Simulated assay, not measured.
Amino acid sequence: MKVKQVFSAYNFQARNSLCNRYCSACGEKCVKKEAGGRERDSCPSCGFVHYENPSPAVSVLLVKDEKVLLGKRAHGSFKEGLWCLPCGFIEFDEDFLTAARREVQEETGLISEIESIISVMSNYLTPNLHTLVVVLVAHVIGGELCPGDDLDEVQWFSFSGVLPQMAFEADENIIARYWNTRIKGIPVDEDF
């Protein structure tokens, strides 16, 4: 199976840069200025450059008895009513492994042990939401299955069966790739 790690829900290459009208550092009105080979919103007063960077996130492939755990996204959440792997943003004060375990517990009620990293993906979801996602494989070591956070439902699905309508193309790809290749990935830091 061919590796795919860049997913786009729209033509991100044709998008216009967001406009930071005022500097987040000092409040002065921003101007467009070349910085790092691109035109960026910059502050003429304090020199602060507003870089647009993707948001770091994690996605966890929880595996048990030839099944994968998926969650149905809650009303009011991004892509509501569709299914996805347990996932979420990495908080500023946490590493990606801690974020993965936290997201699994918040969204599913389960305590997980991370086994490996199986991919890193870029997702261009909307003009204002680009993510860089570390994809991990994990297994359950405790807890009780119960939807939480931004999920209305959680359920185990057979790898060989039909999956529900998925929220993210990247999730469909990683599930199929894992099932077809049984990729082991690279080990994670067991001391963290």
Rank of each mutant, 00 (worst) to 15 (best):
N53K: 10
C46F: 04
K64I: 02
E66D: 15
L69T: 11
A57F: 07
D41S: 12
G37E: 00
L70V: 14
L69A: 09
V58H: 10
P54D: 06
P56S: 15
E39V: 13
F78G: 05
H75Q: 14
C43S: 01
V60F: 04
S77W: 01
S45A: 13
E80I: 07
E80D: 09
G47Q: 05
S45M: 12
R73G: 06
G76F: 03
K79A: 12
N53A: 14
F48A: 13
P54M: 00
R38W: 05
G71P: 03
G71C: 12
F48Q: 13
D41Y: 01
K64W: 07
K79T: 00
P54I: 06
S42E: 04
P56Q: 15
C46H: 00
S77T: 07
D65A: 14
V58D: 09
A57Y: 07
S55N: 14
H50G: 00
S59L: 09
V63M: 02
A74G: 10
L62Y: 04
N53D: 13
S59A: 15
D41K: 02
K67Y: 02
S42D: 03
H50R: 03
R40W: 01
V63T: 06
V49P: 00
K64R: 10
R38V: 10
E52N: 07
R38Q: 11
H50P: 01
G47M: 04
F78H: 12
H75S: 14
C46E: 00
G47H: 06
D65E: 14
Y51F: 14
S42R: 04
H50V: 07
V49I: 15
P54A: 07
L70C: 08
K79L: 12
V58W: 05
K72G: 06
K64F: 03
A74Y: 06
E39W: 02
S45N: 12
A57C: 13
C43A: 02
P56N: 15
A74S: 15
P56G: 09
L70Y: 06
E39T: 12
V68R: 09
S45F: 15
F78Y: 14
A74I: 11
L62R: 01
V60T: 12
L69E: 05
K79N: 10
K64D: 11
L62Q: 04
F48M: 12
R73N: 09
G37R: 00
V60N: 01
R40Y: 02
S45K: 15
V58A: 05
E66W: 07
